[in-house]
Each structure stands twice: as structure tokens, then as C-alpha cells.
Design a protein around this nucleic acid. Structure first.
Lengths: 356, 356
DNA sequence: TCAATTTTTGTGTGCGCACACAGTTAATGA
DNA sequence: TCATTAACTGTGTGCGCACACAAAAATTGA
């Protein structure tokens, strides 16, 4: 029943030193003669030593405190998902010594971000998971983290200029392309397409801009398509100042021949509701994310497809990366795009199941 | 820096017994007085004790030998994927004490299955992962496993009547539905659809039958669709007796108005090649699995969508389940359907990346 | 040359658990 | 009543690693 794997002890014996010395070179703790170091290193290489991670986590009986700084899940359904993902990871990695403290902020108010961010820094966490949705405000915070040598992982909003340990999120441009494909495929012969940004603020939402860009590029790539399809885009501010019904009526009046709508946020259900009311369920509708109301309209057939950005996965993976880094000392990928899943009524169940 | 979690020792102290006794009740090893047992059990419940899995795997210094019995990956591209998944899991779970020995058989020859299966039994593995693609022949083997109390997990082919620890695979019926949806969505106004079974043997391929059933049901569900679409299905035996070109020509002659084709196996690239040759890339084409040649035609736009059954994931998850069962003593799900991913040119990359 | 350092190396303990074995108490029988 | 089992309970060791501390060897200085 030999386990076969090589232990520190084996290396020590082969190098005629003690396990302490091997340990020292393994962790670069110094206080090792050049001679010994070379010898140990050679043998490690020769034997292809891989540390036993199980034993390591048990041995380093350390607790790591991670701060998670994300929008308040009670203010927006979308943010419920990453939040759940973080909590799932919290349970799973507890036994490895990972402790997570969650800090939330109001996604409509940058000041609350600053406030929570300060709290995070006060508590001196060992690592940070953050969704830096306010570009300007985040800069200072992330700068502070770097100054204090606190590693951080970014989710949802890419800001790799800040050199995070890792960015986990979506490729917005590509998802725009994908949405375009799905509408194009479903609409033979061309027509008019509407991009609907249902958001609080368009300027600072680089995501949405990128999605639109990807969407448009899909059609611009081929001259033939470019002729067949016409694209209009509208920004519908949330919360609605003017009732959605009126806003959409206005749009539909000017563009009575709309054949497909691409909602760039998780608010497709709003548009779906509208289409249902005016009895235009023939218009193809694509949106994002498996929120309850979206799922309902997907099952009814009003929404044709949802692109799943796997928001829950973002939260989970974010913590997972930190766990790999802190506990297992693995090197982690600097960039992780999550799959853009295409969800229809027919394969919905699997994605709901696997989210549990 | 207290870790906070409760240890066996804590329970022992609180119950005024030794850790040995606690261990005995935890593992039902007997030799414990009713009184002590009750007390310990109560405290375990009260403290909500969760064993430290890390320490457990280190403590039970056991090696488990798993036998994986799957079709030879060199005889069919499809089976390369689960094979890779198994190897990935092999590396990952090595440190937990999992050792995997792979046995392959010729998927076109049941006798080779019997032969390999016998070898498996001879070597008395602790658990088995098997793709039981020959229904009849498998029965005896699985019966033998049960007799010898060797737990087994099934992948790819469902045979839950044999009470496996778990079945991991696809929901063929549902994937037929999904394929139908994708063709329906892409073909406005109806038309003739071809189901093409490119397989070695149709009768014993319950998968393919189920896929066809799901596909047809999609259209039968709604009277309107039933009128719009006509479905024909053909079995094209592999390896081809008559050149595919001729077979397809014959089919196309009888059904010149085919608007979409659903290939129920991973051989969509064959049909794609045909469509390319006859210059009928307008015909919608749906197939399965991310094989190299399929991917090529997907990128060219000849294949519109591929349904990814995540074959690699089947292999990986199979081992993972066994690991959970043997090492961590977790209870495992008896059934795990993998997501039916819809792959188009635009989101292909993410699935290829994550397969690495 | 020899004590005082400094550098290098070795040893021991703990992490939480599993399990073998020794030790204790209770039940049994003649 | 006391040996003989049987039923139960406690102790000790190891898993592979990290890390503190003790020990030894090499270097320094007067």
C-alpha cells in the first residue's frame, strides 16, 4: 500500500541533510549553505518532488482573512448571484482556514464604496475580493491595497491596469458578438434590431458599451449582413423616470419594423413584459442572466435566449483563486473569462441544477 | 488565530470520554456502551461537528485503486475526451491516494469488453468507473461487481437498474429537444428536417433513439409546428459501406427541400463536408461534441451549432465522484446530468479553454 | 588560542484524524 | 470467591508538513 509519492524526508535522506534543511530551501528561508542548497535543489528536481498539499494545509495551521467588497445584493437582483457564489466558497474553504468577511456598498452611490473600502483596509485582511464598479473611486482603493501589499482579485469589472492577482469575469465584447449571432440566426432575411441598455448609468458602464460594440461588429464584419440589418440603440435609465411602456412605445413608433431586441443587462424581463402587453411575442428577444423573472419569460417563450454570465461562478471562482494562492501557494491565472452559456428553455434546467 | 472548528478532542472532553470512544461512535466501530454513545452523539449534534476532511485524508493513509473501463480512445475520436478527463482527474486526485488503472476495449467488439472486464475483476480494484455501452454484455459484469461489493460509477450509458453508485452523462431526450429548438429557431416558416444517425449500430444505441424521440416531440408538442415541419430520419452506417456522398445524394434527391439537418452523433463533420462539396451551406446543421473536425466546420459556419455533451467532464466527474465516496466518505448524487452546452463560433473559445 | 558570535544544521512538536493496541471495568461461571 | 472471558475505554503512533528551538559547526576577534 505504498503511496509512492516522495516526501520531504526522502529528499533529506538522499541529500544527507535533515528535513529542516530541505524545508528551508523549499521555502527560501535562508540560513542554508550554498552547497547544501544546491544538492537539495538537484534532488528535488531529480525526484520531481511535489509537495503534499493536504499535509501542507494541515501543517500550516493558519487562518486567512479575506475581505469581499461587492454591491449590496438586496439592492439589485443581479448581485445576489456573485454573493451566493462567495458564500458557497466560504463554506467549502472554511476547513482550509479561509475566513471571509463581506462588505457591501450601494452600487448607485460611490460614497458608500469609499466608506466600505476604508473599513476593509482598517481590518487589514490578508487578501481582498472586489467588484470595482466605480472606475475612478476604485483606483485609489486598489492603489492602497498595493501599497500595503494586500493581494486582490477583481470580479465583474476588469481593471487589469491595477495588476490584480487575477481578474474573473466576462468578455463583454464577445458576448455582444454572441448575442448578435443569436438574433441573426433567428431572423432570416434581415430587419431592424434594437439594442436596449436598461441601466442606471451608461457612461460609466464600460460593459454595456463593449457589448454594443461587439454586437455591431458582428454585422459590420460582412457587407451582406450590414445591408440586411439596421441597428438602433437606446438607453433606458433605471429606475425609470418615464414608464417603460411609454418609452418603448415611443421607440416602437419610430421603428415599427423591429424584429429583434438585445437587452445588454439582466433586465430583459422588463422588455419581455412590455412585449407581452403589446402582444408582440414574435419579436426575438435576447438578454442576460438567469434571474427569476428572466427565467419565467424564457419558459413562456417571450425571451428566446439568455446569455448566462455565470455571476455566481464569478464569486465562487474569485474566492477559489484566493484559496489556491494563499493556502496552496499555487500560481494563479491572471485572467479567467467565464464561459458565455447560451440558455434556452430546453437546457435551462441543467444550469439551474448546477448552480445549487 | 484560532481556527474555530470543533475537533474530535473537543467532543471527547465535553463528553468525558476519550478521543478513541468518539472515533468509535463516529465510525460505528462498535464496542461502545449505549450510554457513552448517546452522550457523544448528542454533543456531536449540539456542536454541529464536521470532520476535518484534510486531516482525515492524511490520517487514513490509504491507497485506493480504481479501474476505468472505457472504449479505446484511439479507435474513436469521441472517446478521447472522457479519457482525457479521467487522466486529468488522475493527476488531481493522486495526492489523495487515488490510483487509476485504465482498461480499454474495442467499442465495435463486445468480446473485447468481456476480456477487459475480466482483467478488471482479476485485479480486484476498490472501485470501478465504466462506460457500459454493450447493454447485454455489461449486465453480467455489473452483476459481478455487485456480488463482490465493488462500487461502480457509470458514465455515458445509463443503466441505473444496476444500481450504480452514480450515473454521469447526458440526457439524450432533452438534447434532442434542444437540437429541435435550435433548428426551429433558425428556420422561420417551417420546412423539411433530416435526422441523420451516423453510427455503427442503431439498434443498440439507445442514446440515438432517445435523441430522435426528443427531437420529434418538440415538433409534435404544438400542432402549428407539426404542420410546418416534416421530419425524416436516416441511419447511415459507419464505417460507410456506400460512400457518404452517394448516400446523401440519394436522400437529397428524395427530399430536395431539406432545410435543416440534425446529426445525432459526433460525426456532424461528415455531413458538413458533404454540404460544402455540394455548396449547400445554407442548410442548417446541428451536431454534437467539440471534436477537431467539428470545430473547423463550426468556425467556417457550415455547422451552425454544436451541442457539447462535455464528454471530458464525464470522465473527470466520474473519478471525482469516486474520490468523494472513497476518500471523503461523502454521499454522492445517484444521477448527474451534465449541462447541454450550446456552442457557436462566438462562444467556442471559452469551452475549449476550460477543457484544458 | 579560546571564548564569543555567526552561520548552518538537526530535532521535536503540533496540525486533526484513524487505527492498533494496551488497559480497565463489568459480566460470567465453577 | 476468584479466575476467565467479554465488553468497553484510553493511549500512543503515524500521516507529511511547517516552524520554533536546540545543537553543532564555522567564523571572528582579541
Amino acid at each position: 500500500m505504498e503511496k509512492g509519492s516522495i516526501r520531504i524526508k526522502d529528499i533529506a535522506e538522499k541529500a544527507n541533510v535533515s528535513v529542516g534543511t530541505v524545508d528551508r530551501v523549499l521555502h527560501n528561508r535562508g540560513n542554508v549553505s550554498e552547497k547544501a542548497k544546491k544538492k537539495v535543489l538537484a534532488i528535488i528536481k531529480e525526484l520531481n518532488y511535489e509537495p503534499n498539499l493536504i499535509a501542507r494545509t494541515l501543517g500550516t495551521n493558519k487562518v486567512f482573512n479575506i475581505a469581499a467588497l461587492v454591491p449590496d445584493p438586496d439592492l439589485d437582483l443581479y448581485w445576489r448571484e456573485p454573493f451566493n457564489g462567495i458564500e458557497k466558497a466560504e463554506k467549502e474553504f472554511f476547513q482550509y482556514g479561509i475566513r471571509i468577511k463581506k462588505y457591501t456598498y450601494n452600487q448607485y452611490n460611490p460614497d458608500t464604496f469609499i466608506e466600505s473600502a476604508n473599513q476593509v483596509l482598517e481590518n487589514k485582511p490578508d487578501a481582498i475580493l472586489v467588484a470595482p464598479i466605480f472606475f475612478n473611486v476604485s483606483q485609489e482603493f486598489l492603489g492602497n491595497c498595493k501599497e500595503r501589499n494586500i493581494p486582490f482579485v477583481l470580479i465583474n469589472t476588469d481593471d487589469r491596469a491595477q495588476k490584480p492577482l487575477s481578474y474573473i469575469g466576462q468578455d463583454s465584447y464577445q458576448s455582444g458578438l454572441l448575442a448578435a449571432k443569436m438574433l441573426h440566426y433567428g431572423i432570416n432575411g434581415g430587419g431592424k434590431l434594437l439594442i436596449a441598455h436598461l441601466a442606471e448609468d451608461l457612461e460609466s458602464s464600460t460593459h454595456l458599451i463593449k457589448k454594443e460594440k461587439g454586437f455591431r461588429h458582428y454585422f459590420e464584419q460582412q457587407e451582406e449582413l450590414d445591408d440586411q440589418f439596421e441597428i438602433v440603440s437606446h438607453y433606458l435609465k433605471i429606475p425609470f423616470q418615464v414608464p417603460l411602456l411609454d418609452q418603448m412605445d415611443a421607440i416602437m413608433n419610430i421603428n415599427p419594423d423591429i424584429a429583434g431586441i438585445f437587452v445588454t443587462t439582466s433586465k430583459a424581463f422588463e422588455i419581455a413584459g412590455y412585449l407581452e402587453v403589446i402582444g408582440r411575442e414574435d419579436i426575438k428577444l435576447i438578454g442576460y442572466d438567469l434571474l427569476e423573472p428572466n427565467i419565467n419569460y424564457l419558459e413562456k417563450g417571450v425571451i428566446d435566449f439568455l446569455i448566462n454570465q455565470n455571476a455566481k461562478g464569478q464569486g465562487y471562482l474569485g474566492v477559489s483563486v484566493l484559496n489556491d494562492y494563499l493556502i496552496f501557494k499555487k500560481k494563479v491565472d491572471q485572467l479567467k473569462y467565464l464561459p458565455l452559456d447560451i440558455i434556452s428553455k430546453e437546457n435551462l434546467q441543467y444550469y439551474i441544477d448546477s448552480e445549487k
